[in-house]
Amino acid sequence: MSKAWTFGENMNTDEIIPGRYNITIDPLELAKNVFCEVKPEYVKNAQPGDVIVGGQNFGCGSSREHAPIAIKGSLAKCVIAASFARIFFRNAVNIGLPILECPEAAVGISEGDDVEVNLSTGEIINRTNGRRYQANPLPDFVLKIADAGGIVNFLKMHDIQEVLA
């Protein structure tokens, strides 16, 4: 099962990973301190494939890529939020952390719910209460980058112009 870990509105990058831990770029090292102040039990109890659920403006604040890397390093399957802050959105796409924008799911999922997510269709099922949600589709060029596993992999195979082609 994928367990949901819920976070509130305006979850900022300092709350995702405080600045003092950003001295490393190792995903597993960063993951040791992800959400350490707002939800210390996450690091102790989260299992690979669990799902992060946030409210409006998830990831606001700093441009630090350490924030999505720390989440990805914790082996979370994806982040579902009502909306994402713009730099976090770009960073998540660029490093290959799946993100789903879905205001209804953000409200309809509670801490500990068993959540099934289909990343290719954007369908979200809350198995605890049986509700289904459909995430907003990602723009085509974002899907291209996401499908390549991030912008670095995309560039290994393509010219940057092809992003918009």
Binding site: S63, R64, E65, P68, I87, R90, N91, N94, I95, G150, I151, V152, L155, I160
Partner: peptide, 8 residues
């Protein structure tokens, strides 16, 4: 922006 886009 994030660092990866800077490298790009």
């Amino acid at each position: 922006l994030g660092s990866t886009e800077i490298g790009v």
